[in-house]
Computed example of a mutant assay.
Amino acid sequence: MTVLVIGAGPAGLMAAETIAAAGRAVVVADRMPSVARKFLMAGRGGLNLTHGMPMPGFLDAYGAARERMAPFIAAFSPADLIAWCEGLGQPVFTGSSGRVFPKAMKASPLLRAWLARLEGLGVRVLTRHEWQGFAADGAALFAGRDPIPAEAVVLALGGASWPRLGSDGAWQRHFSAEDIAPLVPSNCGFRVDWSPHFAGKFAGSPLKRIALTFGGRSIRGEAMITAEGIEGGAIYALSAAIRDAGGGVVSIDLRPDLPGLNLPADRRGQSLSTFLRKAAGLSPVAVGLVQEALRAGAPGDLLGLVKALPLRLGAPMPIARAISSGGGLRWGAVDDALMLRARPGVFVAGEMLDWEAPTGGFLLQGCLATGRAAGLGVLARG
Results as ranks from 00 to 15, higher is better:
136 A>S: 14
89 G>K: 13
1 M>Q: 07
230 I>F: 05
258 L>M: 13
361 G>L: 06
62 Y>V: 01
379 L>Y: 01
300 G>P: 15
309 L>K: 01
77 S>T: 11
241 A>C: 07
357 A>I: 11
137 D>T: 11
87 G>M: 05
234 A>D: 02
173 R>F: 00
13 L>Y: 01
362 F>M: 09
381 R>C: 09
197 H>M: 10
225 I>Y: 10
152 A>G: 10
289 L>K: 00
111 L>S: 04
279 A>V: 06
199 A>P: 03
112 R>W: 02
367 C>S: 14
92 V>F: 06
352 M>N: 02
365 Q>C: 03
327 G>I: 01
229 G>C: 11
60 D>A: 15
227 A>R: 15
10 P>V: 05
291 Q>N: 09
176 S>W: 01
250 V>C: 06
80 D>E: 14
309 L>M: 11
195 S>A: 13
169 G>P: 00
42 A>E: 10
145 R>E: 14
147 P>I: 01
237 A>W: 04
109 P>Y: 08
93 F>G: 13
59 L>E: 02
370 T>D: 09
330 R>L: 05
50 T>E: 08
131 W>T: 12
59 L>G: 03
214 F>S: 06
270 Q>I: 03
173 R>I: 14
215 G>A: 08
176 S>D: 14
160 A>P: 07
44 R>P: 11
216 G>Q: 02
247 G>L: 01
299 P>I: 06
250 V>F: 01
135 A>E: 12
294 L>I: 03
252 I>G: 00
79 A>F: 06
289 L>N: 04
240 A>L: 09
190 F>D: 05
321 R>Q: 14
58 F>N: 02
156 A>F: 00
319 I>Q: 07
164 R>D: 12
347 F>V: 05
295 R>I: 04
378 V>M: 00
337 A>R: 15
132 Q>L: 09
318 P>Y: 02
70 A>T: 10
171 W>V: 04
331 W>S: 11
256 P>N: 04
135 A>P: 00
325 S>N: 08
355 W>R: 08
171 W>L: 02
161 S>C: 10
126 L>S: 10
209 R>D: 15
312 R>P: 14
194 W>M: 04
229 G>T: 00
140 A>W: 10
105 M>I: 07
344 P>H: 03
373 A>G: 12
210 I>G: 07
310 P>D: 04
48 N>H: 05
26 V>K: 08
27 V>W: 02
371 G>A: 08
122 G>S: 09
301 D>C: 07
192 V>K: 06
1 M>D: 11
263 L>I: 07
300 G>V: 03
285 V>K: 00
170 A>R: 12
93 F>N: 12
